[in-house]
């Protein structure tokens, strides 16, 4: 085993002995000096999960969050040194934890936390000029293709995940009601906010991502879709972008 492989092996497993060949600089075994590195790795990765999933941290409380995040970092380390991207596997990890099975919505709330981070760091865009939608000719309007802002993220949940997220983050005192919610993360300038999409809104946005025309996206959204309310919501948060020239 190489120096680094030996050094690495014990960092995330405190049951393993201190690797051989390490000293205090005076010839004595390194002992708990090695634990400084163990501690740095565990504390900083755990902290990255806690700060990266603030709604989960709020729902679980400090002690439980510390335990769950501490277990997760041993299972999955960051794939890149960009810590703002760390934790893609955390929602699924939460769903697998038997002791959290009484909180079945946690994974979806975690997906909102993750989507908020992605949105925060996403590319900037030039918001769509709403005048484009004031087409007098309906056929031309329905053939128009609308672009989603790069910062627009969605999370579809069987649970009232957005209401739970807002409650957990102290954005509302209203107790979440027990209905499924499709959630959009919208970033008007720099600060993303999660909002509940109207019925069919998720399907509408999925169709836009697949480059559907406005007419086809409305058809994809299905019965009961309120196109005016949805477009008003999206435009008021700068969630549609000026289409970029192709090519």
């Amino acid at each position: 085993m190489t120096h680094a492989a030996q050094f690495r092996a014990g960092l995330l497993d405190a049951r393993l002995p201190v690797p051989p060949g390490l000293t205090d600089g005076q010839g004595r075994p390194a002992g708990r000096r090695y634990a400084v590195y163990r501690n740095n790795v565990a504390v900083t990765l755990t902290e990255a999960i806690i700060t990266g999933f603030p709604a989960i941290a709020s729902l679980l409380g400090a002690d439980n969050m510390q335990r769950v995040a501490g277990a997760f970092i041993r299972q999955e380390q960051p794939r890149t040194p960009i810590l703002s991207q760390y934790g893609a596997g955390f929602p699924a990890f939460l769903a697998e934890q038997d002791q959290l099975s009484h909180l079945p919505y946690l994974a979806d709330v975690a997906r909102i936390d993750l989507a908020m981070r992605l949105s925060y760091h996403a590319a900037d865009h030039t918001p769509l000029n709403p005048a484009i939608l004031a087409q007098p000719d309906e056929a031309t309007l329905m053939a128009t293709r609308l672009s989603r802002a790069p910062s627009l993220e969605t999370v579809s949940s069987r649970w009232p995940a957005c209401s739970i997220w807002r409650y957990a983050m102290g954005r509302t005192a209203d107790k979440p009601a027990g209905e499924a919610e499709d959630v959009a993360i919208l970033r008007a300038e720099f600060d993303p906010v999660p909002v509940v999409l109207p019925t069919g809104g998720q399907r509408f946005l999925d169709a836009l991502r697949a480059d559907a025309t406005l007419g086809d996206a409305i058809a994809a959204a299905g019965d009961g879709f309120d196109v005016a309310a949805t477009l008003t919501l999206l435009l008021s948060h700068n969630a549609l972008a000026t289409p970029q020239p192709k090519g």
């Binding site: 900083t44 960051p78 040194p81």
Partner: peptide, 8 residues
């Protein structure tokens, strides 16, 4: 196994 977020 990934990035360890410490200067080792």
């Amino acid at each position: 196994t990934g990035y360890l977020n410490d200067l080792l």
